[in-house]
Amino acid sequence: MKNARTNDLSDRRTAAAEAKVALLNAYRTAKAVDEPARSARQAERMAAAVAREERRLERERIKRDEAERRMAEAIEREAAADAAVRAETEARETVEKNRIARVLEDEAARKAERDRRYANRKARRA
């Protein structure tokens, strides 16, 4: 069966314009119908983004606190090590001073013994 209708340029242009209008109306209708759901999805996305940002900030705070704690522990260990080194140095110095004092006392005792023997020998000769 033959198409009885003539398909002139103006008819095709009119049909195309009507199709565009129909598509635009269908889009607007679908958009209007979908608006509440879209708003709800957008609100959910915003809530998820806010929660994600809060979790990120919490993680950063925890990392910062952990870094501060580690730094404090490192400072404390360093101070303890310095104190131990200082105490060891002081102990070594004390031992060295005591040894020097004993050496001086022994030297003084030897000199005193020598002087006593010398005095005894002089007394026996005189």
Rank of each mutant, 00 (worst) to 15 (best):
E54V: 07
A72F: 01
R28H: 15
A26M: 11
T29M: 14
Y118I: 12
R117N: 13
Y27L: 15
A19F: 09
E35R: 12
E88D: 03
R70Q: 11
A32Y: 04
N98K: 15
A91T: 04
E44N: 04
L9N: 06
A37T: 11
A80F: 03
E35A: 13
E35L: 11
V50R: 11
D82V: 13
R5V: 10
A84T: 12
A40M: 02
R92G: 01
R124W: 04
T89L: 13
R114F: 12
A101H: 03
A47C: 00
E68Y: 03
R41T: 01
D82F: 10
K20P: 02
Y118C: 08
A126E: 10
R77Y: 06
V103T: 11
R116V: 03
A22G: 00
L23D: 13
R38D: 03
E105G: 05
A30S: 15
V50C: 01
A15M: 02
L24W: 12
R41Y: 02
L24E: 14
N7K: 10
A4Q: 12
K122S: 09
A108S: 05
K97R: 15
I75M: 11
R121Q: 11
S39Y: 05
A109V: 07
R77G: 03
A84M: 10
K122R: 15
A26R: 15
A72E: 05
A84V: 06
A43I: 00
T94D: 03
R86I: 05
A17P: 01
R38V: 08
A123F: 08
R117S: 04
D106V: 05
A37K: 13
T6S: 10
A81C: 09
R12A: 05
I62Y: 06
I62T: 15
M46H: 08
R5C: 05
R45H: 07
V33A: 15
R56I: 08
E73N: 03
A83Y: 02
V33I: 15
L24P: 02
E76I: 03
A26L: 12
R110D: 08
K63P: 02
R13N: 10
K2H: 09
R92L: 11
V95C: 02
E105A: 14
L104W: 05
L9R: 13
A109I: 06
P36M: 00
S39F: 02
K97D: 05
T94Y: 04
A91L: 06
E88L: 03
Q42P: 00
M71I: 03
A126M: 10
P36E: 00
